[in-house]
Design a protein around this nucleic acid. Structure first.
Length: 233
DNA sequence: GCGACAG
DNA sequence: ATCTTGTCGC
């Protein structure tokens, strides 16, 4: 039982990240934007009942039509700690992904990949554990800095860490709307990650993959609570 | 030492 | 993440 999926504490979780980080692949371009399948994943919480619901929504990358959906419900296994988000979200997300019959293709995560204090955010962790190509699209820049991209859709600017290294990009997906923060997870180049993000967000700030997964996991959580998942044995 | 900090 | 009314606008 090496590299346990549920670490006992924060120190162990960081040690797991440091160990798994060596397996991240950064020299593959990944699937060409607009081809094959793209899968969005997201989770919703009910802290009072200690429940977490995850959703995986598979889209046709060319048309953005929904190909397949899956959900999973479980118990929260780890608290929210900045930098350790994967340990909170991944167990349930993996359960949802495993119940898909389609090959997920490129996985789009709600959070970061390489833009992470130890270069091993949620998207990199998911990619290494599953072997799938993965990217992270986050709504906030976390501790990283960036210059405002141009005002129009498609404008980008580097997302920089404290040493001035580019760990991702701020990508303007809609005219005059706050950018999203894209970083590589596993087996995808940063250029392709940004291109995928733009294609996935033709009409809204966030990628359709993320929007669909967000709506689905919220619904799954409501239904789980309604069915009494938080109650007795 | 304290605060900030993806979701 | 989540708690939450009305309101502005296409």
């Amino acid at each position: 039982m090496k590299s346990p999926s549920s670490p006992a504490g924060e120190a162990e979780a960081r040690a797991i990240q440091d160990e798994l980080r060596a397996r991240v692949v950064l020299d593959e371009p990944g699937p060409p934007p607009g081809t094959g399948l793209v899968t969005g994943v997201d989770v919703a919480y009910d802290d009072a009942r200690d429940l977490v619901a995850a959703a995986a929504v598979v889209l046709d990358a060319a048309t953005l039509a929904v190909v397949e959906e899956a959900t999973a419900v479980g118990r929260v296994a780890f608290p929210y700690v900045p930098g350790l988000l994967a340990f909170r979200e991944l167990p349930t997300v993996l359960a949802a992904l495993e119940s898909l019959s389609a090959d997920p293709g490129l996985v789009v995560c709600d959070g970061y990949g390489q833009a992470h204090p130890r270069r091993f955010g949620l998207a990199s962790h998911l990619g290494v554990v599953t072997g799938l190509a993965a990217i992270g699209v986050a709504k906030n820049p976390f501790t990283f800095t960036y210059e405002q991209p141009g005002p129009h859709r498609g404008a980008v600017s580097p997302l920089l860490d404290g040493a001035g290294e580019e760990v991702g990009r701020a990508v303007r997906t809609q005219d005059g709307v706050k950018p999203v923060f894209v970083s590589v997870g596993h087996r995808v180049s940063l250029d392709n990650a940004c291109a995928h993000t733009l294609r996935l967000a033709p009409g809204f700030r966030l990628p359709e993959s993320t929007r669909r997964a967000d709506a689905l996991c919220r619904r799954a959580l409501r239904e789980a609570v309604g069915a009494g998942f938080g109650t007795g044995a």
